[in-house]
Design a binder for these strands. Structure first.
Ligand SMILES: [Mn+2]
Ligand SMILES: [Mn+2]
Ligand SMILES: [Zn+2]
Ligand SMILES: [Zn+2]
Lengths: 150, 150
DNA sequence: GACTAGACAGGAATGATTCCTACATAGCAT
DNA sequence: ATGCTATGTAGGAATCATTCCTGTCTAGTC
C-alpha cells in the first residue's frame, strides 16, 4: 500500500506543510515503513535517493511533520526515538528482547475511561498503551539487561 | 508515610540487594518522593547527606534496584529518565506542559485484554498506560513545542 | 581478622539530539 | 515570469544524560 506522491503532496497542503523534495522523501520513507524506524534509519534510507541529505534535515522534517500532526514519536523506554507515520489512534506491542514494535489496532482499547476522581483536575486529552513481552521470534531468548557497574 | 530504615533493610535482604549506606539513601529518597524524580534530582537530594556520592553510584544503584524489582523506570517521551519507587501495578497521568507525572491506581485499568488474534504470537507480559493532557496548574498554558530549525 | 566479589568515586568517553550559520528555495506578491 | 522574504537545508560544532573505565574500598562470609 505504497502512498502516491500525489497523496503525499495533498496531505502536506492540507496540513500547511511546506513542500520540499527532502520532506516528501522522508515522509514517504516513514509512511511506507511499518517498523517505526529511528531518525538515523530514515536518514540512511532517504540518503540513497538524496545523497546530500543531512541528519539535521531529517530531524527538522520529523519535527515539522509532528507539529503538523502527520507523524508521531513512539518512544520505548529510554531507547533512541522512533517514529510512526500512522497517526490514527492505535497502540503498540513491544518486544523486550529485540525491541520490535508492532501496531495494535483494537477498537476495544480506544474507549478507556478514567474516573474524574482519579484525574484530580487533570484535563485528559488521550492515552497510549504499550504492551510489552516477547515477540514470536524471541520467545525463548531472555532480555540482555547487562550493565557495567564495578 | 516515610519508610523506616528497618523496612528498607528488610526489602533489600528480601530482594538480595547488597546493603550499603549509599543504596539505602538513594532508595529512601526515591520511595519517599512521589514525583518520579530524575537520576540527577536524586543525586542532588542524596548528596546533602552524602557529599562524596557520585552520579555513577546513583545510576548503578538505580540499575541494581531495577533488576531486583524494587524500582521501575518511567519514561515519558524522549525526556530524561525518571524513576518510580512504587512497583505496584499502576499507570500515569502526564502533563504536556510541565511534565508532571501523577499516579493512577485504578483497578479497572488492570484488567485489559488483547485479542490473541491481534497479538500475533507475542507473549504479552504486561502493559503500561500513559494518559496525557494538562494538569490542574497548566490548564490555560499551551505546550511550548518550539524547536530551532533554520 | 582476613578474603573476595561486588560497590564506590572520579573522571573520560559516547552518541543521539540540538544548536549554529551561511546558502538555497518555496510560496507569494508584483 | 521575476523578485522578495520567510523558511528549509547542509554541514559541522556543541550539548548533556548516560555509560564506561580504573583504582580504591567494603559488605558479606568463613
Ligand atoms: Mn504504530
Ligand atoms: Mn508512579
Ligand atoms: Zn523480539
Ligand atoms: Zn502541568
Amino acid at each position: 500500500m505504497k502512498l502516491s506522491p500525489w497523496e503525499i503532496e495533498a496531505r502536506f497542503r492540507r496540513h500547511a506543510v511546506r513542500l520540499t523534495r527532502q520532506r516528501v522523501a522522508i515522509y514517504a520513507a516513514l509512511v511506507n515503513d511499518a517498523s517505526h524506524p529511528t531518525a538515523d534509519e530514515l536518514y540512511r534510507t532517504v540518503k540513497r535517493q538524496h545523497p546530500m541529505m543531512s541528519r539535521n534535515t531529517v530531524y527538522c522534517t520529523l519535527g515539522a511533520l509532528r507539529q503538523a500532526g502527520l507523524v508521531q514519536e513512539v518512544n520505548v523506554g529510554h531507547e533512541v526515538a522512533r517514529f510512526d507515520g500512522n497517526v490514527t489512534v492505535h497502540h503498540h506491542l513491544i518486544c523486550r528482547v529485540c525491541g520490535r514494535i508492532v501496531d495494535v489496532m483494537d477498537e476495544e482499547l480506544n474507549r478507556l475511561a478514567i474516573s474524574s476522581r482519579q484525574a484530580e483536575g487533570f484535563h485528559v486529552l488521550g492515552y497510549r498503551i504499550e504492551f510489552y513481552g516477547y515477540c514470536a521470534d524471541c520467545q525463548q531468548a531472555r532480555p540482555d539487561v547487562l550493565e557495567h557497574c564495578g
